[in-house]
Amino acid sequence: MNSRRLGKKALGDAGERSAAAFLAARGYRLLEQNWRCRSGELDIIAEKGARLIFVEVRTRQSDRKGTAAESVDVRKQWKLRQLAQIYLQQSRRQEEQVQFDVLALMWNGSEWSIQHIEHAF
């Protein structure tokens, strides 16, 4: 990527690609990216070992409005849990052990810094 500030859509898309590569390199098996239903979207659904992991990806270019990780507030966590329940029902995987992770990415204009928060909530 070029050494510059990115627009919001380009930043989000690049962050999600980087997040997927980060997880794959660490042994996660990616099942879904940008899974959508009427109620919303789950960024990444992956497996590692016996766990089904729902990963929320947050990207930032600065922390003026708070860090990427801080943006996954209680309301967002509630929404992600609801979406995960819909996914589990639709995929007939209600008996799976699940985990919620957050990948917080910061783009400094030339490279990513990535904070992986496992069992985030």
Rank of each mutant, 00 (worst) to 15 (best):
M1G: 15
M1T: 15
N2R: 09
N2A: 14
S3C: 09
S3K: 06
R4Q: 15
L6F: 04
G7N: 14
K8N: 12
K9E: 06
L11W: 08
L11C: 02
L11R: 11
G12A: 11
G12S: 14
D13Y: 09
E16W: 12
S18I: 04
A19T: 06
A20W: 00
A21F: 07
F22A: 02
F22K: 04
F22H: 15
L23G: 09
A24N: 09
A25K: 10
G27D: 02
G27N: 06
Y28D: 01
L31F: 05
E32W: 05
N34D: 10
N34K: 14
R38M: 05
G40C: 12
I44H: 12
I44T: 09
I44L: 15
I45A: 06
E47D: 11
E47I: 09
K48N: 07
K48V: 05
K48D: 00
G49F: 10
G49D: 09
G49M: 05
L52S: 05
I53F: 07
I53D: 05
F54A: 01
V55P: 05
V57H: 00
V57Y: 05
R58Y: 10
T59V: 00
T59G: 08
S62G: 11
K65F: 15
G66V: 01
T67R: 08
D73I: 00
V74G: 13
W78N: 11
W78Y: 13
W78C: 04
K79V: 10
R81K: 10
Q82N: 10
A84I: 00
Q85I: 00
I86M: 06
I86N: 03
Y87I: 04
L88E: 03
L88Q: 07
Q89T: 01
Q89P: 00
Q89S: 09
R92S: 14
R93F: 00
E96Q: 15
Q97N: 02
V98N: 06
V98D: 01
F100A: 08
D101K: 00
V102N: 11
L103W: 07
L105F: 08
W107C: 03
W107K: 13
N108R: 09
N108I: 07
G109V: 01
E111H: 11
E111N: 13
W112K: 06
S113W: 07
Q115N: 14
Q115E: 14
H116C: 11
H119Y: 02
A120V: 02
